[in-house]
């Protein structure tokens, strides 16, 4: 565990909590892509199956459980409790276009051809693109609420911090996992355009609006 990894994990947790609180306090999930949230839940479910087979640390297990419960909670709020506020007209990304190719790739490119390892690989690949329905939704409506942009910034920062953690681990421990590194870089690159808008607009007190 190093500081980049820890701050990355906390940033990830912060993102999930920001989104949950936004939905809970405003009693609305307007502007949030339910499809991205379903994909993130699928990511956690397929990645953390090793909770039952492989104990690493209390920190590791507790964080996994928190991520699972909070992400499933978000899906529950969006599709059940506050379903009336869910903006499905704008959430039109076809997730099968992500899940099917990612599923195929995880069978072809993995470290080990075993069920748990393929599911872990699937979750890593899927996470890298799971934000696309949310970004697509923002590009369709042309704007995002400020709280939603804080959520996206925390979520994007998490994988960027993991990249720094991987560089650090490579030099200090000789540890590297190419699948995680490549997918993590793809994931971070997808946020670059958003990071630019966040820094140039949201941090200066303006709402995130895309140029017409």
């Amino acid at each position: 565990m190093n500081v980049f990894r820890l701050v990355g994990d906390l940033s990830h947790l912060l993102a999930i909590i920001i989104l949950l609180l936004k939905i809970w306090k405003t009693r609305s999930c307007a502007g949030v892509s339910g499809k991205s949230q379903i994909l993130f839940s699928l990511v956690f479910i397929t990645r953390y199956l090793d909770l039952f087979t492989n104990f690493i640390s209390v920190y590791n297990s507790v964080m996994k459980i928190i991520y699972l419960v909070t992400s499933l909670g978000t899906v529950y709020l969006m599709y059940f409790k506050f379903k009336a506020t869910y903006d499905s007209n704008h959430d039109t990304f076809r997730i099968e276009f992500l899940v099917v190719p990612v599923g195929g790739l995880s069978f072809l490119v993995n470290h080990d051809f075993t069920p748990l390892e393929i599911l872990w690989t699937f979750s890593i690949y899927l996470e890298s693109v799971a934000i696309l329905p949310q970004l697509f939704m923002i590009s369709k409506t042309g704007e995002a609420e400020t709280i939603t942009s804080h959520y996206l910034f925390a979520l994007g920062s998490y994988r960027a911090l993991y990249i720094v953690n991987w560089v650090y681990r490579y030099y200090t421990e000789g540890f590297f996992d190419l699948i995680a590194i490549v997918a993590g870089c793809v994931q971070t690159i997808l946020y670059c355009d958003f990071f630019y808008l966040y820094i140039t607009k949201v941090l200066k007190g303006k709402q995130l609006k895309l140029p017409a």
Binding site: D9, N54, N60, D112, E117, Y162, F175
Partner: peptide, 10 residues
Amino acid sequence: KLATAKKDEL
């Protein structure tokens, strides 16, 4: 060292 078995990351 290619670590895959012990996944301590989240």
